[in-house]
């Protein structure tokens, strides 16, 4: 029983990170209609940037703050330099552009940092606490806590702020929003910026609890099923999907094998697609393609 609870906690912690990454994907998809296949590379880039900024600035905390500022700016730049010129072109071309961007970022990371994994000795402690007979890693609790705070802040931003309202408006009623005077291009830039910020938070959490390697880009591959399972049009769905995938993965790993974990995740994905194509929390009308 203790190990079952431990695995659930690990799953929620891992799933929270999937959730953060998944929200970034959903947010950009919802507002721009573009599925950003370079999102995982933003996570990896954030983690690597963290290691070099820690070396340059001397303090992990300072480096974290710097990453959370720099990476969103990069996201906005990506919009203006790469995505915006693609607007009005066929969607497939834009999606291919994000795939190309991902490959380019991956190459950039390898050129700048080489293939060796790196370490980040951040301010997150690496010990565990015993709660009864259950041993829980402090970093897992912190990860869950930070993810929850991020999700709450993001939810407030999305539902309460004027930018959030404009973002929802552009996502759901693009023409009407633009003709009401909303500058959609700028809203897209904000979406990319906020998406990059969420990727940066995930990158920082992963650098602290895992190893900094270019493999972190592959995280997007597991966030994609999270997005689909939760519902591609639903921000809350992305969180639910992320946590569900994380927990499923850990339980499958514990009671079968790590290879089975991937199979289980994709089996659930398939089942959701068959039974509820719009995802657990998705809405049918919001399905675009």
């Amino acid at each position: 029983m203790a190990s079952f609870i431990q695995d659930i906690v690990s799953g929620i912690a891992t799933g929270s990170i999937y959730g953060l990454v998944a929200i970034g994907l959903v947010l950009v998809y919802k507002s721009t209609g573009v599925f950003n296949f370079a999102h995982g590379e933003f996570v990896a880039l954030s983690a690597f940037l963290l290691t070099s900024l820690t070396a340059a600035l001397g303090a992990g905390w300072l480096a974290i703050v710097a990453v959370l500022v720099i990476v969103p700016i990069l996201g906005v730049l990506v919009h203006y330099l790469i995505i915006r010129p693609m607007m009005g072109k066929p969607l497939l071309a834009t999606v291919m552009t994000t795939i190309g961007l991902g490959l380019a970022l991956r190459a950039l990371i390898l050129i700048l940092y080489g293939p060796d994994p790196r370490q980040f000795d951040g301010p997150i402690p690496s010990n565990a606490v015993d709660i009864g007979s259950v041993r829980i890693a402090v970093s897992d609790l912190l990860t869950i806590g930070i993810a929850v705070v991020c999700l709450l802040l993001f939810g407030l931003f999305f539902t309460r702020s004027s930018l959030g309202l404009q973002m929802r408006a552009v996502a759901n009623q693009m023409e009407a929003s633009i003709l009401s005077g909303v500058n959609a291009s700028r809203i897209y830039a904000v979406a990319f910026g906020v998406g990059a910020l969420l990727a940066a938070v995930a990158g920082v959490l992963l650098a602290s609890t895992s190893v900094v390697s270019v493999q972190l880009s592959n995280l997007a591959l597991i966030a994609f099923p999270a997005v689909i399972i939760g519902g591609i049009s639903s921000v809350q769905g992305a969180i639910v999907g992320g946590i569900l995938v994380g927990v499923l993965e850990k339980l499958a790993e514990a009671y079968a094998s790590q290879q089975a974990a991937i199979a289980v995740v994709y089996a659930v994905l398939l089942a959701v697609l068959l039974l509820r194509p719009q995802g657990i929390l998705g809405t049918r009308e919001a399905m675009r393609a």
């Binding site: 431990q6 695995d7 690990s10 891992t14 994994p117 972190l216 790590q258």
Partner: peptide
């Protein structure tokens, strides 16, 4: 698995089963 974010189930299992040693294969990452 290559590219796994963590090996928490493995870590938890080692903590539970307390083996005398680990004989490992893998890659650096």
């Amino acid at each position: 698995e290559y590219g796994a974010l963590n090996e928490d189930v493995f870590g938890r299992d080692v903590a539970d089963k307390k083996p005398d040693m680990l004989i490992a294969h893998g890659a650096t990452s």
